[in-house]
Write a protein that binds this DNA or RNA. Sequence first.
DNA 1: CATTCTGTTCTACTACTATTATAACAAAAC
DNA 2: GTTTTGTTATAATAGTAGTAGAACAGAATG
Lengths: 128, 128
Amino acid sequence: MYIQIEPESDIPIYSQVSTQVMEGIIRGELAAGEVLPSVRGLASDLGVNMHTINKSYHDLEAKGVITIVPKSGAVISVAPLKGASKEQTDLLSEKLRPTVVEAMVSGMNDDEIHALVDSIMRNVREMK
Amino acid sequence: MYIQIEPESDIPIYSQVSTQVMEGIIRGELAAGEVLPSVRGLASDLGVNMHTINKSYHDLEAKGVITIVPKSGAVISVAPLKGASKEQTDLLSEKLRPTVVEAMVSGMNDDEIHALVDSIMRNVREMK
DNA sequence: CATTCTGTTCTACTACTATTATAACAAAAC
DNA sequence: GTTTTGTTATAATAGTAGTAGAACAGAATG
C-alpha cells in the first residue's frame, strides 16, 4: 500500500490521503481487518503533520470505510460496503453536479462524460 | 433565467452561482450574446455581496463560458463550446476522482455510478 | 448633457478551513 | 518498563469565502 500526495494540488492533503486509502481498498490491496499505518507513521512518511492524517482517518471513519481503535490503530472496516444509501447517493450527486455541469457546458456529450468516468474507474482499479 | 442558492450548502455560494449559469446555458435558457444581470443586481436579488457574484463571473470567464465587458456587463460567450481540451479533461478528471472513488468504495457498481451521472445530466437538462 | 449604471479597485473585517508545531495524557501493545 | 497509539490541548500561520463601504472611470441611457 503506497500513498503519496501532491502538495501543490488544489485538493486538500487530508482528502488526497482519504481518496488513496479508498483506492487501495477498491484494488484489493487493503482488506477488511487490515491495519493502517499510525497517524504518526504515515505523517512522517508523507512529510506532513500528524493532525492532517488524523483528519483523514476521521473522514474515512465518518464514511464507514475504517474503524479507529483508540490507542491501538485504524483498521479497515469489517463488512464490505454493500452499496450506497439514499442519503449517500444524494450527497455524492451534490458533489458531482458542479463538475458534471462544467463538463457538459464545455461541450462534452454524454458518451464523452461517461468515458471520462469510466477512465477514472479503470485507472483506480489498475493503478499500482 | 432563475438563479437561487442554498446558503447552508458546503458548496461555496460563488460556485453555486457559476454552476447555475452553466446549467441555464445547457438548457438553452441562456444563449450566446445574451447579457447576464449586473453583479450588483444579482447580488441584491440573491441577498449576497457584490464581490461574491463578481468572483463567480470571473470564474465563468476563466472557463470561457462568459465574457465580461468592463462597465457594460457580462455576456454569454459567442462561440458554443466545442468540447473539452486535454487540459480541461484532465482537470475535470482530477475534480471527479475523489467522488467517483468514494462512490466505488461505498459499494456502488459501474452501472450504478453511470446511472447517477446520467440522472445528474438529465436533471440539469430538465430542470425548470 | 446629466444621470445612472457598469465592472473594477481599494481597504477592512470576520469566520472558517487546512495545516502546522509542540506538549502531554491514558492506555494498549510489546 | 518502555514504546507506541489515538487523543486532547494550545497556539499559530496562511488561505479561502464572504462581507461591508467607498470610490473610480467610463459606458449606457434618458
